[in-house]
Design a protein around this nucleic acid. Structure first.
Lengths: 209, 209, 209, 209
DNA sequence: AATGAATGAGGATTCATTCAT
DNA sequence: AATGAATGAATCCTCATTCAT
């Protein structure tokens, strides 16, 4: 008798629909990568017909790029919050490391999908990959700033090296967690990583002094 | 008797055909991942008809698994060679790091494809992924052995942690190279990584002494 | 009151919108025929959303029919102008031929699209095709009248034959121009055509005398 | 009991299958033009699945081009047969005209489809169109040869003009037949056309004498 | 050991059209 | 007078796989 409301034709609501599509796509893309993210799968998970997905996104490339973009923003805001500058430098570094570790435990889709895209080498690069690399460049800049702040006497070149190494460690630890699951204590390893990077920085600074 | 020379290549030669298929598949899989590696694409690159691929390999899963297997073996033999135990421990560690760095510059297909597979989380895991994880376990065992050899007083638990961290760094640096190309000095970063891991091990050993 | 100027184009203006849609549709239909004229293509070229096209036209069939109608009217008025009856009959015939030739150089969309539709034989005939055939019947009637005027002694049957032949030549020459481009001197060929038709008419008239 | 043979899985026979596909495609394309020739329609008419059509033809463009090619060959061999050089020149001309008229009554698909393609002006020209224009160039060459044979004293330039006009008339008459059906006596009109062209040629030859 | 041909399921995308506002 | 959003059916084409030879 009381035909459920949900069954009625949705009142047109672009923003909400777009969100539903992205929600579905981020899950699937995080699981199956670029090629594995079929429009049919997204449609099945979000309930909107394929043609509606194409109303909101030009093509699959566009959808994946939007997924990356939103996913990165979510992740970034999850990471950035506790910016308070208290404690010794080392304490602050390890606090930040713990923060990143937690964010990667909570919101791993962004990085998993991004790394999958980044590892690919298609002749015509998907826009999602570009989007990820841009997001990554933003993140890299932030890391470099933190390093410069903590170790102001470091040479430009050494900041670069340290930044690269810091991010590499983060990526690698995320991969380990991805592969080996709960047996990997991300938080502890990230703290170790932060300490080692910081000490390497100290030593570099002394070497140049 | 009078069969023209030009036909000779067509003559049955299982080993050679199998090799051609794998050569083609490793390239494409390295470019496009699991889903992106279509039989049609392999066929186009190796010149053999699709049905011939199925003569040599049970199915696509089997082909990808074989790609991983062969690619890992190639890589492993490229890494292992200079095993001579000369010099100080630290020297030996950095020599090995340089060795791994070089191998990742030369034979990146194995790791790129493997990481792509490892990052996926599809419901039914492809055999290629299992194959990669097994290969990875072998490599991990070797790393653990080396660490145990260099730092015999380390607790089991610390060896595990250090091994995980060592491999994470290697993966992460490979990803950096993959993304940022020649601007990343893999050799130098690997040496830095090796030093940091070694020192972390020394400190762990002292802490427990 | 304070509505910015830039918004003004958005203001409701049915006639103008309708014109823009038809302008876009005539171009696309001239390029791609009936099936090839997608609403999306029209929308892209005229800038109005698809739903606006449906506000102005019942359906695609209706749009194409309107295109044909307007295109034919434009063409007809371009052809008819210099109707003055001066000079010898042959002079008048060749003047008219030149006139038609010129119109086909200027306004080819009508005939190109019409012929495409006419050549099709789909089960359910598009209304645009009917529209074209009606326009064509009008044109045919005019040609027949001219022939009758110039050669009043011709039998009804011969007028019909000559009319058919006259129009066939015009169509055929238009096609030649369409295919071979500027290398076809439409004006000269139309004059030749007019002469031949006129002489054929003279001979027919004599044969019956 | 006796399951009909036709129901059994076809024994692989590429040539036969290709023929069936072309037979189906030529009918549909003749009816509905390029865009209207959907792979689904061809599949329905020939009984082979769409993927089999793609085994034999690279894509739809390739299929249509093959249709044009085969259709032109069929038509050409239907036209060419009675080549005997007997009778007066005019008699021979009208005999040939009758021949062409009959061929267009029997095998109209080639020309109908070809003209549809020729009238289109897509940005990226379909290969079928090119194929048709090439076929048309061959036919044009033959017409020019016949004209030169019958009127050897004609200037090169006049042969060209006459050829263009001759073909234009043929196209135009075919279109008339296509539109007005049986009420158009193609044979008679073609004979008239042949006579007029021949006389125009005679006059041109005299003018230059 | 190899392959030409075939095939059903599914891929991304576009279609003409409608509807609520 | 107009439009953002939606939609089911159809589009072309590729997929992994099989089979008879």
């Amino acid at each position: 008798m009381t035909k459920p409301q949900a069954e009625r034709r949705q009142r047109a609501n672009g923003v909400e629909s777009r969100r539903r599509i992205l929600d579905a796509a981020v899950e699937i893309a995080g699981e199956r990568g670029y090629e594995g993210t079929s429009i049919a799968a997204v449609k099945a998970r979000c309930g909107l017909p394929a043609s509606s997905i194409y109303w909101h996104f030009k093509d699959k490339d566009d959808l994946i790029a939007a997924v990356i973009e939103r996913s990165f923003e979510t992740w970034l805001s999850a990471v950035e919050l506790p910016d308070e500058s208290i404690g010794t430098p080392l304490e602050r570094v390890t606090a930040m490391a713990a923060n990143v570790a937690r964010s990667l435990l909570d919101e791993p889709d962004f990085l998993r999908l991004g790394l999958m895209l980044a590892l690919e080498q298609r002749p015509t690069e998907p826009r999602g990959r570009t989007q990820f690399l841009e997001a990554r460049a933003v993140a890299r800049q932030k890391v470099a700033e933190v390093i410069h702040l903590l170790l102001p006497s470091l040479e430009e070149d050494d900041v670069e090296t340290l930044t690269t190494y810091a991010i590499a460690g983060a990526d690698g630890l995320f991969v380990q967690r991805q592969i080996n699951g709960d047996s990997v204590d991300l938080t502890r390893l990230f703290r170790l990583h932060a300490e080692l990077v910081y000490e390497a920085g100290l030593r570099m600074a002394q070497a140049h002094a």
